[in-house]
Design a protein around this nucleic acid. Structure first.
Lengths: 187, 187
DNA sequence: GGTATTTTTTGATTGTAATCAAGTAGCGCC
DNA sequence: GGCGCTACTTGATTACAATCAAAAAATACC
């Protein structure tokens, strides 16, 4: 829990009152490998902050599993649309490694946003960061060859690269495992 | 100016003090067709809210102009990376039609975020909305054929579709003008 | 530790949209 | 209103990664 507060303190001032409310509201979770943080076609009720471990979000596209993103230590993960709108969506979130996490519900978040200016600040800053990251990804998807996509992935995900099977990386990059295998064979 | 305040009031409570500060700080602009709101390779110092008209953001990729986005009435436009980081970037923003806009500098924004919880709220809500929109675009780019991309564009940009030349739409969708022309010929 | 299953590699073929190339239409501007 | 330019359309060819197929390697599980 302390680690989550430390993480948040990087982006906003953390008053003792806010820290206390976070301590009261956040849930603690331990997931084993392959456990689901969120099953497909259900409402994703919580947003998870990963203290230790590695998770992925994915969905089933015509019988194939497509990975949509990863989150490791100090990152947030949720099925954004489902979480924000309170509706089911096809995404699922599963642990790739044994994972320890803290989570907040939408109600918790909205309450904290209302009550604490500094929490609202945190929300804004995190959303901006996610937005900028997603922009980069969009540009990579749009303008680069499979080799460059992989290159880009390597530089941005170095810390977790070795922990991921090739197939997941390929579908995240929007290329086939065969193509990624060939790309890797050359580099 | 009143219209900007109305727009903001949709997403946050707008105290008289905040409204007053906005009135004082926002700049008003009129652009003629082809005018640059922001030239390439300079720092984008302001974020623009479009009251009337239509603008686009684009950059030069190997001699070809690639359109990266549009903004029409009630939308915001800036070169995000340059604006947030205060560094030059290759994007330019130009008016497609005569355009009336209001703008804020980064300093204005940061000041308002600090001083007004409700402004911070507005920032968070707008960033979330942009993020969700961008997610949809990313999925469209990633998983759909040229015909579906165009379909998706038509449903999401109906109001401005007729105001845009085909070439801009094509490069926004990440396909060639030739391909878009053929897609349109069939539908 | 050995078998079964999944993941990755390697190879051959195909499909789709990009590129190359002209021609036509639309529009801005004097 | 006509000239010149840009935008759009249409056609032929090419390139690249997807798909199909199968073998090899890695991993899971009893």
């Amino acid at each position: 829990m302390h680690a989550l507060l430390q993480h948040m303190a990087q982006f906003t001032t953390l008053s003792p009152q806010l820290a206390e409310e976070l301590r009261q509201r956040a849930h603690h979770h331990c997931f084993r490998k392959h456990d689901l943080l969120h099953p497909a076609d259900t409402v994703c009720r919580r947003t998870y902050w990963i203290q230790q471990g590695l998770v992925r979000i994915y969905f089933n596209k015509d019988g194939k599993i497509v990975t949509d993103g990863f989150a490791a230590e100090n990152q947030w993960m949720t099925s954004a649309y489902s979480f924000m709108r309170g509706v089911p969506d096809p995404y699922a979130i599963a642990a790739i490694e044994p994972t320890e996490a803290y989570s907040l519900s939408l109600e918790d978040l909205l309450h904290l946003f209302d009550r604490f200016h500094e929490m609202e600040r945190f929300g804004r800053v995190i959303m901006s960061a996610q937005f900028m990251e997603q922009s980069e990804r969009l540009n990579s998807l749009r303008f680069t060859s499979p080799a460059e996509k992989y290159q880009h992935f390597c530089t941005h995900y170095r810390p977790i690269l070795a922990r991921l099977p090739l197939g997941m990386v390929a579908s995240y990059l929007g290329i086939t495992p065969e193509t990624l295998s060939r790309v890797r064979a050359k580099g």
